[in-house]
């Protein structure tokens, strides 16, 4: 176990450019690599990799970029990506292997952990190096966010998938130096044991939830689809933000499934998150607890949402929201 060295990231590209998680992982990985005095590398897999992309990753903190380009890697598939990442990781023998707990990391990370015979912890919030043992210490939420656990791996590479939007990217520095290593692989499409047939898009109008800086969300207390449209959709539109919902509101059909925020919905971290008639269950907080300004509107003064909120109104939302929306319109028109 002695020759494993370096922190390696499994990156993700979206239409040829690094996904936000790459920068977040480079920010987190840089700190780990520096405290170990080791190198930070990032593996990217795609059908085509431009030099803009590799330079950008170096400017964002990588000492080395492993670039694997092959036609089969044009669309993410766990089988082909796991095969390539397994080969590279076995060859480079990293001490630490990080990825995002994204749609990609959700199946790729456990598959790789098995193939590398390595321990893995998912959805980590915080990673650091223990000064005495030099092992990576990982903190992750458990019990739907009600508790936190602190763990370490007993095997190498030490693997973690990291919760998106929790790590600070580094400021870009185009004078940073790094190396690009192109790795060629032999892949046949038949490596993918399951076949992608089609993508069915959910129609969503207006601002995308994940990238919105302003979010108005409704919960079970909203009571109906009509009320959700008239209150949450309208308020979101007025402020130029996105509409979100609790799982209970989605399950009840008040809001479309794509609007769900939380542990098993979207993870958001906007400047403003207004929670209307949402109690604040830990699983909901898991998706929005890091928002900069949380507002709770709830008729129950003991609702958990008030514990994380900066501003609160204790009242029936039906009486608060129309006036709130009107005033917002007025203020924003000024």
């Amino acid at each position: 176990m002695a020759d494993e060295k370096g922190v390696m990231i499994v990156g993700e590209l979206v239409r040829g450019t690094p996904a936000p998680i790459c920068y977040e992982l480079l920010g987190a990985g840089r700190k780990l690599a520096d405290s170990l005095g080791e190198q930070l590398s990032i593996l990217i897999m795609a059908d085509n990799i431009s030099s803009d992309t590799t330079s950008d990753l170096i400017a964002s903190g990588a000492d080395r970029v492993y670039a694997v380009a092959h036609p089969v890697l044009g669309k993410y598939h766990p089988d082909s990506f796991a095969a390539v990442a397994e080969k590279v990781a076995k060859d480079k023998k990293p001490n630490i292997l990080l990825m995002g707990r994204t749609e990609v990391g959700q199946d790729l990370a456990p598959m790789l952990s098995y193939r590398l015979d390595a321990g893995l912890l998912m959805d980590c919030l915080d990673l650091k190096i223990d000064p005495a043992s030099k092992m990576m210490i990982m903190e992750r939420p458990v019990y739907g966010g009600n508790a936190r656990s602190v763990l370490h791996c007993e095997t190498k590479p030490q693997m973690a998938s990291v919760k998106p939007k929790t790590q600070e990217p580094l400021p870009k520095d185009t004078s940073r130096k790094g190396e690009v290593e192109t790795i060629s692989v032999d892949l046949s499409p038949s490596i993918n044991r399951t076949q992608f047939v089609e993508h069915i898009s959910w129609v969503s109008e207006g601002v995308q939830l994940e990238s919105a800086e302003l979010i108005i969300s409704g919960g079970r207390g909203i009571g109906s689809t009509e009320a959700y449209k008239a209150t949450i959709d309208v308020a979101a539109k007025v402020i130029g933000g996105a509409a979100g919902a609790s799982k209970a509101a989605c399950d009840a059909g008040y809001a479309p499934p794509g609007n769900q925020v939380g542990l098993t919905g979207k993870r958001v971290s906007p400047t403003l998150y207004v929670a209307v008639a949402i109690s604040g269950a830990s699983q909901h907080l898991a998706g929005m607890g890091t928002s900069k300004n949380i507002v709770a509107i709830n008729r129950d003064p003991d609702a958990n949402m008030f514990k994380v909120a900066r501003y609160g109104v204790v009242a029936d939302y039906k009486q608060v929201m129309p006036a709130f929306i009107e005033k917002l319109k007025e203020l924003l028109a000024e």
Binding site: V295, A296, R310, Y311, G312, V314, A315, P322, A323, I325
Partner: peptide, 17 residues
């Protein structure tokens, strides 16, 4: 948390905005 309390719920809504 700062609880915003107007004279009535509608007023609280306006104050919040």
């Amino acid at each position: 948390v700062e609880i915003i309390e107007g004279e009535n719920p509608a007023e609280s809504g306006r104050l919040l905005a």
